[in-house]
């Protein structure tokens, strides 16, 4: 009985230790990724943004993206209207791991876009944090986040995918795909003054529950040349 108990205690101890050591391992990986991200103080990027939400018909538009450490981020459309997920969601990754107080747990390996990645779960320790859980898929050899899934309290779950090219050294992606859940949408008729409601049922069904996507393809970055804070206002 005692022997058994010891065994269990030992097991738990070992388990706990291994878990802890593993976790520490992930934290350092995350720290390394973060350190690489920190190479960029600011950038201005040009690219094209496409909003793909089932119930929104939008054109592809040219955008300018501004970033400044620690967490200032802005997408500006050239003379146009931009439709972004709620909260202006920072389609940037520094905000993902900007938290200081977290636990990083390993959740195995995965292959994303042909490269091997470590799955890391980030749990904020802060009770008041908006983010409940972030899952990162990190390319260990290049210290790049390939994919991130964030669950928030208020705004649901987002999924981000990053594709890297010539700016990989700065951890800056050539393309970001940002996917999010959209709630059902119905306009009150009084506002639209639309008399007829002639959409077919299957089109409506198709629109329901489909994830929304915002896709930004960057064509150029200007890195660390300094940006005025007024841009973010």
């Amino acid at each position: 009985m005692v022997k058994q108990l010891r065994k269990i205690t030992l097991f738990l101890f070992i388990f706990h230790f291994s878990l802890l050591s593993h976790a520490q391992d992930m934290t350092s990986l995350v720290q390394k990724v973060k350190a690489k991200l920190d190479l960029v103080n600011d950038y201005v990027a040009e690219g094209k943004m496409k909003t793909d939400v089932a119930f929104i018909k939008a054109p592809v538009g040219k955008v300018k993206v501004f970033f400044k450490k620690p967490n200032q981020f802005k997408i500006k459309r050239d003379n146009g209207i931009s439709i972004l997920p709620k909260g202006g969601v920072s389609v940037n990754m520094s905000s993902l791991i900007e938290m200081n107080n977290y636990v990083a747990l390993s959740a195995g390996d995965a292959v994303i876009d042909g490269s091997k990645t470590k799955i890391v779960k980030l749990l904020p320790m802060n009770e008041g944090s908006e983010i409940i859980l972030t899952t990162l898929y990190i390319d260990e050899s290049n210290l790049l986040i390939k994919k991130a899934i964030t669950t928030t309290k208020e705004n649901g779950t987002y999924e981000m995918e990053f594709f890297y090219g010539q700016y990989a050294n700065y951890s800056l992606p050539d393309k970001v795909i940002f996917a999010f859940n959209t709630k059902d949408y119905k306009m009150p008729k009084g506002i639209t003054l639309e008399f007829d409601d002639d959409m077919s049922k299957d089109v409506k069904e198709k629109m329901k529950g489909k994830k929304g996507k915002v896709e930004i393809t960057y064509t150029s970055y200007i890195i660390n040349k300094g940006i005025d804070n007024s841009i973010f206002k």
Partner: peptide
Amino acid sequence: TDDMFLMKNNYAVQIENAD
């Protein structure tokens, strides 16, 4: 002038300024 963002009954439409 700018892009037009219009609400229809079941969806929204954004039309480019030049269009």
